[in-house]
Design a binder for these strands. Sequence first.
DNA 1: TAGATTGTTAATCGATTAACAATC
DNA 2: TAGATTGTTAATCGATTAACAATC
Lengths: 217, 217
Amino acid sequence: MKGNKEISSSVISRLPRYYRFLCELYNNGLKRISSKELAEIMGLTASQIRQDFNCFGGFGQQGYGYNIEQLIEEFAAILGLNELKTAILIGAGNLGRAVASQMSFEDKGFKLIGIFDCDPLYKGIKIRDIPISGDDSITEFCKGNEPDMAVLCLPADKAPDMVDLLVSLGIKSFWNFSHYDIHRKYPELNVANVHLSDSLMTLSFIIKNSTSGDNND
Amino acid sequence: MKGNKEISSSVISRLPRYYRFLCELYNNGLKRISSKELAEIMGLTASQIRQDFNCFGGFGQQGYGYNIEQLIEEFAAILGLNELKTAILIGAGNLGRAVASQMSFEDKGFKLIGIFDCDPLYKGIKIRDIPISGDDSITEFCKGNEPDMAVLCLPADKAPDMVDLLVSLGIKSFWNFSHYDIHRKYPELNVANVHLSDSLMTLSFIIKNSTSGDNND
DNA sequence: TAGATTGTTAATCGATTAACAATC
DNA sequence: TAGATTGTTAATCGATTAACAATC
């Protein structure tokens, strides 16, 4: 990373989208692209794209633009997609099972190695060849396998104790689908939150303001 | 809304979180709170909270703070949670079924009235008393029921045609779990995107930068 | 009344956009 | 070489924070 300066959260939030669009362009057979063309496609300014890319290094060539394949490799490295991280899933309810079976963890450098649920109903059922185990085997499993990350798909009321346990077992990173605010107690952990209900509330807000707001002024 | 001035996207993105925390405080029996206390709990500044709240009106009282119950009502109104919006779900795969069965649409003012999937495998199965129908009945259903919103849980390659169809049937709002960029073709529509893989890539980035970055400087 | 805390204006900070010299 | 487009610096814009008068 260029000079190891801190990357702003605004830039970070745009990285996955860059990667996604570049992969799509590459799959469409495109070899090179200018910041101007990419800006047009992604709905950004060319200036912003060049600023963003130059947080990490000078990937382009004056008069030519950017080589898409090279850019994809650079972004994969920036995002750490090639570095293997092991993950376990906590909570095998509807959402947990959907995430376990649909998400391509491998493409992002994660390998799902264990699934756990407190409900004995699920015990033994396999998802992608991984059997669902009981909550009581989490400690032993973590001591033996030292997973790097935990996907939290459990109710908010069970999350605090579970996070305490997982942190005590050495897990430092969480993909958090629960409504428990991990950073408040553990600001040093790596956390990405997915708040589906927040997203649906945002849509409700957008709808309300498009219908009631546009009428008058 | 105060003066009907445009609300910035920064403020909008914080609204659901305010609502969530206020509800939690209320459920814990708290009656009032100052911006300073709320800032402490949510990890924000008191100044920002007062600025945010005052985009919508003066809900507080000098020397006292804010009445939590009143605040919750105001936010529910701001977010449009009390205005009924009908919704259909397109795609009853793992993720679609999880969303249909777990998400409390009602709390956000949405009512799920139809579920559709192209795969005849799911035909007739009910989720929350709503039977899954075939894709071929979408047109008739929409003409009869005029749903306000569609939840898109289908593969990106099927999304463009489906959005074209739904837009032609009068749907103006989308909760989009697919990787298809609806706003590019229809900038006037109401869209909230959920990009799970973007979120996981962001976590990968955070992990990479916490481990490799913190060593040296 | 005195103390507390808001609502709001002003100051600061950071992010985005514009401009342009460097250079392929 | 001439044209194109980058990398980077400067200008602008917007969001956050600080300050304080208003007032409960």
